[in-house]
Simulated scan of single mutants.
Amino acid sequence: MNTHEAINSDGRNTRWDQHRRERRDELIKSARAAVHDLGPSASMDEIAAHAGTSKSVFYRYFGDKNGLQRAVGEKATEFVATELLRAARGKDNPLEALQTMIRIYLELAESSPNVYTFSTESDGETSEFFSGIADVMSTIHERFVVETKPEHRENMAARVSATYWSTAAIGFIRHAGEQWLTEPPHEDRPTAPQLARYITRWLVQGFQPSRTIQPTTPPRHA
């Protein structure tokens, strides 16, 4: 193959790769719209019909329904992570940033519970959606430690909390949020901003923030 043919071949391959990426993104958007309307249990046949294409097209790009769920989840993670990081950067106080991130997470989930459920479930296991969000949460942990206790940044407690806090926090937020999503409207159901405020307080201050837990004094032996 001469140089001219190689350039043409590379150009065709680049255009084809770009076309596949664009087509894949279109199918993910179509799947999101179908799931939003039909529910998270929609079959591949139903999703394809809603998208106006054939099931074989979805199988060609995603393999099976689990593959489609992962792809939708990845796009959702990218979008949510971008929104959460933008919110965090816009706040001077790390606790305010945390509360804002939780509120946005809740509002995005509430905007389409069907897509949220579809994105976060795959083969009955937690998808990579939450590990991606946990990575974002770790940035808040870093800010909190650096801005409030910089001298503790390198000690063991800080390293342990950096490892586990974001994972524990997203589990807490997830389960509280999912229970909230399934509740029908009633007078005691908090709004997303209200629940975000509660969750932030629980994560940072505990269940009873007004009380200080004192260490237990061991009993004296006679």
Results as ranks from 00 to 15, higher is better:
H4N: 13
E5M: 06
R12D: 07
R12K: 14
N13Y: 12
N13C: 05
T14I: 11
D17R: 15
Q18N: 12
H19N: 07
H19L: 07
R20G: 03
R23C: 03
R24I: 04
R24S: 14
E26V: 05
K29M: 14
K29W: 14
A31L: 13
A33N: 13
A34P: 09
V35D: 03
V35T: 07
V35A: 05
D37W: 00
G39K: 05
P40G: 03
S41R: 12
S43C: 08
E46Y: 05
I47F: 05
I47Y: 03
A49M: 06
K55E: 10
K55G: 01
S56Q: 15
S56R: 13
V57W: 06
R60T: 14
G67N: 01
Q69T: 04
R70K: 13
A71G: 10
G73R: 01
A76G: 14
A76D: 11
A76M: 11
E78V: 15
F79C: 07
F79S: 14
V80G: 02
R86N: 09
A88M: 08
R89F: 02
R89Y: 09
K91R: 14
N93R: 10
N93E: 15
N93V: 10
P94S: 02
T100P: 00
I102S: 07
R103P: 00
E107N: 01
L108D: 08
P113I: 01
T117W: 05
E121L: 07
S122R: 12
E125R: 15
T126I: 08
F129G: 04
F129D: 02
F130S: 02
F130H: 11
A134R: 08
D135Y: 03
V136S: 01
M137W: 12
M137G: 03
T139L: 12
I140C: 08
I140Y: 00
H141C: 10
F144W: 13
V145K: 01
E147G: 04
E147N: 01
P150I: 00
P150C: 00
H152A: 11
E154G: 14
N155P: 00
N155W: 10
A157T: 12
A158W: 02
T163N: 10
T167L: 14
A168Q: 11
A168V: 11
F172T: 12
F172A: 06
I173W: 03
H175Q: 15
H175P: 01
A176F: 10
A176L: 14
G177S: 14
E178D: 11
W180A: 04
W180G: 07
W180F: 06
L181C: 03
E183A: 11
P184K: 15
H186L: 06
H186P: 00
H186M: 08
D188K: 00
R189M: 02
R189Y: 03
T191L: 07
T191S: 15
A192E: 09
P193Y: 08
A196L: 04
R197V: 04
Y198H: 12
Y198R: 14
I199A: 06
T200P: 07
Q205V: 09
Q205C: 13
P209D: 05
P209K: 03
T216M: 09
T216I: 12
T217F: 04
P219Q: 12
H221K: 12
H221T: 15
A222K: 11
